[in-house]
Simulated scan of single mutants.
Amino acid sequence: MAEETSKIPQATSKRLPLYYRFLQNFANAGKKRISSSELSEAMKIDAATIRRDFSHFGALGRKGYGYDVDHLLTFFRQTLDQDEETDVALIGVGSLGNAFLKYNFQKNHNTRIVVAFDPKAPNDGKPISNIPVYHPDMIEEKIKELNINLVIFTLPSKAAQEMADRLVKIGVKGILNFTPVRLSVPDWMRVHTIDLSVELQTLIYFIKNDVKDSQL
């Protein structure tokens, strides 16, 4: 029997959408079954890690056969609630925010941005990439009206904590934070911070160390 979701390691949970994406690619290519080694080669993840991740959910495959692609797709679709769309709000329509609005998630995922907020927008809203954009004065009203629980931060750093405090008061459950600010929020709210400058510096560090290692 699969373990409860709350007991699944965080690292495993973060890989689940990746597994789903690559399994879709295999299915689109007409693949009916795959081995952990084939999935490992495609994803560049160790096969032992894949088998360990899958083991948290019970017997997903059979020894000597591998994994049934359609079965895995169905399982991960249900696990990730891929059949249920999640509406998202975006706060801050600068360069990065505009990029999100133009791309939007509904093209490839089960999430979609349905509303955005920016100080340059009027209270009655204006469309950008077919998404209504309102002044931040309308945040509480619109988020409650649209029953939104997930918000993306692409706003200036100086406004991030104050905005998070406002979202806490109306019960928003999650923030995908693209500012470098480490937000202070209650335990019941989940924040995932993606600091692009830190990610870039980390990549530079590994590139330099890879070079050094190859010269030893």
Rank of each mutant, 00 (worst) to 15 (best):
E3W: 09
E4L: 13
K7I: 03
I8Y: 06
P9Q: 05
P9F: 11
A11E: 15
R15E: 11
L16M: 14
L16G: 03
L16Y: 11
L18C: 05
Y20S: 06
N25L: 14
F26N: 05
F26Q: 08
A27Y: 13
N28T: 11
G30V: 10
K31Y: 00
K31E: 13
K32R: 14
I34N: 04
S35V: 08
E38P: 05
E38F: 10
L39R: 03
L39N: 04
L39M: 15
A42E: 13
K44G: 04
I45C: 04
A47N: 08
R51N: 15
R52I: 03
F54S: 09
F54A: 07
F57G: 11
F57H: 08
A59W: 01
G64Y: 04
G66L: 10
D68C: 07
H71T: 13
H71P: 00
F76H: 08
T79W: 11
D83R: 11
T86F: 04
V88E: 02
A89N: 04
I91C: 07
I91N: 00
A99L: 15
F100K: 00
K102P: 00
K107C: 06
H109C: 07
R112K: 15
I113G: 00
I113E: 01
V114F: 01
V115Y: 07
D118V: 02
P119L: 05
P119D: 04
A121G: 03
D124K: 12
D124P: 02
Y134P: 06
H135L: 08
M138T: 01
I139F: 07
E140V: 12
I143Q: 03
E145H: 12
N149R: 12
L155H: 00
L155S: 02
P156D: 01
A159F: 14
D165W: 08
D165G: 15
V168K: 14
I170H: 10
G174P: 03
G174I: 01
I175N: 04
L176I: 15
F178R: 01
P180W: 09
V181K: 14
V181C: 05
L183Y: 09
S184M: 14
S184N: 14
D187K: 15
M189W: 12
L196R: 10
V198M: 12
Q201A: 15
L203H: 14
Y205H: 09
F206R: 13
F206I: 13
I207V: 15
V211D: 01
V211Q: 10
L216Q: 09
L216I: 09
